[in-house]
Structure formats: C-alpha cells, structure tokens
Design a protein around this nucleic acid. Structure first.
Lengths: 114, 114
DNA sequence: CCGTCATGCAACTCTCTGGTTGCCTTTTTG
DNA sequence: CAAAAAGGCAACCAGAGAGTTGCATGACGG
C-alpha cells in the first residue's frame, strides 16, 4: 500500500469520528467524560438538557465510532472515553493540513521561479 | 478566562469543522483539494459521483466551517483549502485525548495507593 | 418483600440534509 | 456573433437523525 493510499484509508476511518463529534450534544458528552472521568448514563443526563433516552442514543453513536465504550457495574452502565480513535482523527487532520501547506509551498516556489 | 473555559471554547469552535468533515462526499473533496491543489467546481465534480449542484452545496458547507474559501477567476470559481481551522480541530481532539489520559493516570495512582 | 433507582425497548414526530432536475446568467472562444 | 463552458437559483423529494413519551425490566437498600 502506497503512502497515499494509507493516508486515504486513515482519513476514511476518521470520518465516523468526525460525524460522531459533529453534534453539539455528543461533543458535550465527550468533553464532560474527558474532564469528569467515567460516568453513568444518569450522571451524564443530569448535566444535560436532553432526555436520558437521547443521551443513551448519543452514547451508542459515539460507541459506534469507537470513541467511547461502556462497562456494566451492577444496575448501572459506566461510560468511558477511548482516546485512540480521537488521536487517529487528530492525526488525519494534521496530515491533510500538512500536505496542503506543502503543496502551497511548492506552488510558491514554482511561481517565484519566473 | 480559565484554561478549562479556553479548552471548551476551542472544542465548541471545532464542532462545525467536525460536522463538515463528517460527510463522505465532503471529506473526499477536502482530501482531493489537499493533494490536488486549488480546483474549480467543474474539476471537483468530474472526479465525484454526485452532481455539480451537490458539490457546490458541499463546498458552501465547508466554507461555512471555515475549512475552504473560494477565489473567482473569470467565469470559474477556484476553491482552496484553509488549513488553520483544520489544525485547530486537530489540536482540540488532541487536548481531549490528553486530558482523558491524564485523568486515567490520576485514577490509577489513586487506586494503587491503597 | 417493596419501593426506588438505573436502564432498556418501541413508536412517533419533526426537522435537517444530501441529492436531483430544470432553467437562467455570465464568460470564453472559434 | 453563436455555441459551448462554468456556474447560479429554486423547487422538490426521500431518508436520516435528534428528541420525546410511555411502558417494561432488572438490581438495590431497608
């Protein structure tokens, strides 16, 4: 696999993460987990404007993107962040930015050569 | 503004970027601009599965998120990537990941203290 | 055992959004 | 100038998605 294909694959994999984080409620949940540590659905709902069911749905979406995962403890369900995918997505964005900046540099050199 | 508020603001600002990149067609457009340099709507459409109008709409969404901007040249409209917002979003993800990992480290230390 | 707390399941509403088609305007170019 | 190229505008449609309500189930504490 060429470096270019590898980059494309990375970006494609990151798409679901972007999609998951593109919603205000979900992004808030992620931010709260990040700073507040592992929490149950009820805890997360108490600091949210929406219903518990809505929170549950959002957590499922985040789990689908591999951004969070749950651990059952008695009658409650604790949700934890999964930093790996977030870092992958972060790296993908960084690669896109870098490649673009390099392309602009090459263009600049080309133009100035005249 | 506390560091925590600053982080929250950064994350909030990144939301529109995540939302914009959460779509397959738009992510493809961004990737193509990144590697192929500035391009017109027609050029972007020719390598796409969807209609020119669809491409235009997607570019507008990306522009709304500050990820791209256009330059008019004669009868055509050239689109360019804007790496700044992408880097902001990348940094936001990185911060979330880091804070989470640090929180887990603290928790680990706390547990092992017994 | 019983009430309560935490959650699951399902149906339903409403809005947003990705995509299309049809037609019109502005530049180029032979 | 006339045809072709590039793009803009508007209406329309089907499906996805966010959120809600109502009811059912499982685990805990007294």
């Amino acid at each position: 696999m060429s470096p270019r294909d590898a980059a494309t694959a990375t970006v494609t994999q990151a798409r679901s993460v972007f999609s998951a984080l593109g919603d205000q409620t979900r992004l808030s949940l992620v931010a709260r987990l990040s700073s507040g540590g592992p929490q149950s659905i009820s805890q997360l709902t108490s600091r949210s404007r929406v219903t518990r069911q809505a929170v549950t749905k959002h957590l499922d979406v985040l789990a689908g993107a591999g951004v969070v995962h749950d651990i059952r403890r008695g009658r409650e369900r604790i949700w934890e962040l999964d930093s790996a995918r977030l870092q992958d997505a972060s790296r993908a964005l960084d690669q896109i930015s870098r490649r673009w900046d390099e392309a602009l540099d090459r263009l600049k050199i080309f133009v100035e050569r005249d």
